[in-house]
Simulated scan of single mutants.
Amino acid sequence: MRMRPLGRKVGLVAHVGCSVGWLGAVLTSLVLAVVGLSTRDAETARAAYILLEGVGWCALVPLGLASLLTGLVQALGTRWGLFRHYWVIAKFAMNLLAVGVLLLYTQTLAYLADRARASAYPADVDQMNGLSPVVHASAAVALLLTALLLSVLKPKGLTPYGQRKSASMPPRGGALRTRRVGILP
């Protein structure tokens, strides 16, 4: 079912807003992960790891799920469709993968936050320093920027289903248009 123009615009604003918010939350996580990894101050590192968990549950998960849902609504409610264009399928797959990894990774964030809360000595915090939060956040930034590029560039390429669907539909704009042929231009 195709959405009406106002519904499409509202849906697009919602999808772009959730996706940009998600990217911002991922960048925030990357900054916190780098601070936690690079600081020599145990209290700063402890705070960074505790904040990572909060950002994960309060921003990353809700915005990731909202981006997935609004993207699905946009795909199903507009001419782009979910299975007509390779770039839409790629974005949907990347979003599913990112949300799935995120939901699994929240366990790691909870573990790091629990260890940061329980650490009594700076040496305990030093043992927590690992590249995992930096690597995960960096990969998420790369994935979301790739999805952004796909959205803006919309590379050509219909799937076989999209080719069949396009062949069976009238051209955009309604009825077939004919060109008048005459002697004068």
Rank of each mutant, 00 (worst) to 15 (best):
residue 138 S to F: 07
residue 70 T to M: 01
residue 106 T to W: 09
residue 168 S to K: 15
residue 45 A to K: 00
residue 134 V to C: 10
residue 9 K to I: 15
residue 52 L to I: 10
residue 35 V to T: 13
residue 181 V to F: 09
residue 124 D to H: 06
residue 71 G to S: 03
residue 164 R to N: 11
residue 50 I to N: 04
residue 15 H to L: 08
residue 153 L to N: 07
residue 165 K to G: 06
residue 182 G to N: 09
residue 99 V to N: 02
residue 127 Q to T: 12
residue 129 N to D: 10
residue 139 A to W: 11
residue 102 L to H: 06
residue 120 A to N: 10
residue 132 S to M: 14
residue 79 R to P: 08
residue 177 R to S: 13
residue 133 P to M: 02
residue 147 A to K: 03
residue 162 G to K: 00
residue 184 L to V: 14
residue 167 A to H: 12
residue 162 G to F: 00
residue 100 G to E: 07
residue 48 A to I: 02
residue 41 D to N: 13
residue 122 P to Y: 07
residue 89 I to F: 07
residue 134 V to L: 11
residue 115 R to Q: 15
residue 23 L to K: 00
residue 25 A to P: 02
residue 36 G to N: 02
residue 40 R to D: 15
residue 184 L to H: 13
residue 24 G to N: 07
residue 44 T to R: 14
residue 7 G to T: 11
residue 144 L to M: 12
residue 36 G to E: 05
residue 23 L to Q: 06
residue 35 V to E: 08
residue 26 V to F: 06
residue 87 W to D: 01
residue 125 V to Q: 06
residue 55 V to H: 02
residue 60 L to H: 05
residue 112 L to P: 04
residue 116 A to L: 05
residue 61 V to K: 00
residue 92 F to L: 14
residue 114 D to Q: 14
residue 103 L to S: 04
residue 101 V to M: 11
residue 6 L to D: 14
residue 17 G to R: 04
residue 160 P to D: 08
residue 49 Y to Q: 04
residue 176 L to N: 09
residue 137 A to R: 05
residue 102 L to K: 00
residue 160 P to Y: 04
residue 148 L to D: 03
residue 2 R to G: 12
residue 105 Y to P: 01
residue 107 Q to Y: 09
residue 43 E to T: 11
residue 107 Q to D: 13
residue 77 G to I: 03
residue 178 T to S: 13
residue 153 L to A: 12
residue 124 D to S: 08
residue 42 A to G: 00
residue 102 L to C: 07
residue 86 Y to S: 09
residue 75 A to H: 00
residue 113 A to R: 01
residue 74 Q to E: 10
residue 100 G to M: 07
residue 25 A to T: 01
residue 103 L to E: 12
residue 90 A to P: 02
residue 80 W to E: 12
residue 15 H to M: 05
residue 179 R to Y: 12
residue 33 A to Q: 04
residue 14 A to T: 07
residue 6 L to K: 14
residue 43 E to Y: 06
residue 95 N to R: 12
residue 79 R to N: 11
residue 36 G to S: 01
residue 25 A to E: 03
residue 184 L to R: 15
residue 150 L to P: 00
residue 66 A to E: 00
residue 82 L to K: 05
residue 160 P to A: 02
residue 57 W to A: 09
residue 61 V to P: 03
residue 60 L to P: 04
residue 43 E to F: 08
residue 105 Y to F: 14
residue 80 W to A: 12
residue 178 T to G: 14
residue 134 V to H: 03
residue 126 D to G: 10
residue 111 Y to C: 12
residue 151 S to F: 10
residue 136 H to M: 15
residue 57 W to E: 12
residue 101 V to F: 11
residue 143 L to R: 03
residue 99 V to Q: 08
residue 141 V to Q: 06
residue 16 V to P: 01
residue 67 S to T: 10
residue 29 S to K: 06
residue 96 L to Y: 07
residue 147 A to R: 06
residue 148 L to T: 10
residue 123 A to E: 15
residue 9 K to H: 14
residue 79 R to T: 11
residue 111 Y to G: 12
